[in-house]
Design a protein around this nucleic acid. Sequence first.
DNA 1: TATGAATGAGTCTTCATTCAT
DNA 2: AATGAATGAAGACTCATTCAT
Lengths: 206, 206, 206, 206
Amino acid sequence: MAADWREFGDDTLNAPLRAALECFAAHGYHGTSIRMVADVAGLSVPGLYHHHRSKQELLNKVVGAAMDELLAHTRAAAEDSDGTPAGRFDNIVTALILFHLSRRQHAFVASTEMRSMNPEVRAVHVASRDEEQEMISSAIAEGNESGEFDCPSPVDAARAVSSLCVSIANWYRPGGALDPNDIVAQYLGFCRSIAGRLDDAPAPRG
Amino acid sequence: MAADWREFGDDTLNAPLRAALECFAAHGYHGTSIRMVADVAGLSVPGLYHHHRSKQELLNKVVGAAMDELLAHTRAAAEDSDGTPAGRFDNIVTALILFHLSRRQHAFVASTEMRSMNPEVRAVHVASRDEEQEMISSAIAEGNESGEFDCPSPVDAARAVSSLCVSIANWYRPGGALDPNDIVAQYLGFCRSIAGRLDDAPAPRG
Amino acid sequence: MAADWREFGDDTLNAPLRAALECFAAHGYHGTSIRMVADVAGLSVPGLYHHHRSKQELLNKVVGAAMDELLAHTRAAAEDSDGTPAGRFDNIVTALILFHLSRRQHAFVASTEMRSMNPEVRAVHVASRDEEQEMISSAIAEGNESGEFDCPSPVDAARAVSSLCVSIANWYRPGGALDPNDIVAQYLGFCRSIAGRLDDAPAPRG
Amino acid sequence: MAADWREFGDDTLNAPLRAALECFAAHGYHGTSIRMVADVAGLSVPGLYHHHRSKQELLNKVVGAAMDELLAHTRAAAEDSDGTPAGRFDNIVTALILFHLSRRQHAFVASTEMRSMNPEVRAVHVASRDEEQEMISSAIAEGNESGEFDCPSPVDAARAVSSLCVSIANWYRPGGALDPNDIVAQYLGFCRSIAGRLDDAPAPRG
DNA sequence: TATGAATGAGTCTTCATTCAT
DNA sequence: AATGAATGAAGACTCATTCAT
């Protein structure tokens, strides 16, 4: 994993989960009926239930898979860095941006349907998200010490960085006018400046 | 209005609309039943229908009121500025931040339930949002000319600025640890750096 | 009540509960669909739900009303007796028989659908039934002391007496060949002999 | 068979039928799903269907086997008697009691799920039950002639006797406080007194 | 003005049953 | 012989909405 954290191939969702993802992204959890999911998946309703026990479970699995993938890539990105806080920050944020470009719907559903999840499942996802943000804020904090960053509140900045990356999923459409690589560069620039990165060689900016 | 665009008093929603807002914010449009709204409003179901023709209309009114208020404040803020692009940018973004602090639920519902609105109503709101972002991007573009900003893509930066301000509604709770004034300063700083503001006197940063 | 414990007029079930009673008696709780009940009651399905919260509640109310009526009549019968254990036994058992003749379906459903009830509701009904049998067994036990009965195990006999009266609901149909008064006399005789009643003037026997 | 009508060994139901019996006894026919039966039987659903064509057939076979066993034992008991009506009555009733002690669940299901059976299958079982009761009532009637019984209505008494024996299945649990042999003696006494048995040597009574 | 009562259409879910493998 | 996968029909229940009062 450590080597290819930049790569997001086709996701591994099977037909029913993919259908659920698409429906949830388009209409929301409560706006989606199980019949819609079954139709999109090319199954009958009981056929869908043969694979997944409930509508709730569809959501859990979709969001769970997304969160796992995000964390795995982010951790790999952090480990893969050059050892400096700034390098770690760049890698983590790059992974975050790439994820939201590559898993647009997953990310959108995960952030939108938090409230529709079971409390216990939601707790897991909140923990994942918190770990995410913690990785960012500690990189910034260490960067403050190393002189690479000048950020008065790493925790708040990390939240803003995270929010900004998440927001990509709200508007990005593959095949649109913007090149993904440009977006990565652009948003990495945004995030560096939010975090108070002190640049000799200034980062690309939007 | 031009004078007090910084002030957001109590909103003017009557009981049914306020109830709808609360329910939509908590459970989403499709996750909210008309009966829930009636209960929270202290009305019977037909009593609710006496005031508002449909569930859809509740959403339209709630979101419409929010968008109108946001636009009014933003326009007033723009007009109230010192005439420089940088001053206009600061005012507009400040209005945007204040709105998302003061109308947390309204903003959350407006951004979350776009897809649940009638197409024609949605079109109005999209137009409002676009006008919003256009005000920001043109301030940045003019700032590029005036030398106050150095921003390669004002449109993209404006979207990022807007997204970041909207995201405040996702986590801010009145009465929390952070002081609203500090948040304004902090996020204005974030937005300035996203937009490539060239500072003599550096802005507060997060 | 003490005066008219022999009288069972029309029961007080309203249309939905009466419909539920009839359906449960005919097809059992699980064999009855809510649609059947609604049809029999002359209501739409949501109309039925307007009056009663769930299928389970229909069962609870039907059985609860029956148990309450049975207990009220049995207690009144006990209080109305001539003071001797034998007189009390006769009154209680007579009330029991009359109930199963007059509330055939109620009794049938109550005894058949115990297992279909919520645990807590079932507990109430088990307690009622136990009180019932306790009234019978203590009459027998006191009759043993007074010399009116000779019964080695009043508890077991009381259960048999109770079971025998309940069984009337399995076959009795109003308007059939047997006169209700004759059945009362006959089954009272059965019950006396089960309980070991020592007769000078022999009771009617079947 | 004539020799051992008092013996009820393990029943001969195979795994699927035994599972069906247990489920039907616990939840009723309509409260039982084919999947529950399959699970209890340790089979897959199609595996269950491989052995039995339908849920209905499971019920038919379970009840049919029970009825056949009951009739066989009752007939053997009748033939095995000492030739007197009273002796025949005692044997038949004893067989009836033993059956309800030994085949508690079978008897319970057979009496509870009459209404859930196919009409033609139900007809067979009604006929069996009628034959049963006819054996009892004719023993009583002949006993009236022979002076061993004094029973004004043998048919009604036979039904009461039958009902009382059936009711044992409602409460008896193997391993409980009461010894099966005692129950036989006790209920035989109950039934004799219901039937108006005139005793020189008084029978055991409850 | 306000509400108890009602409803057609829809919700999620499970049913008994079958079939390709 | 045995099963994973599938399905039309039905299950209980709720939806947004209306109407008589």
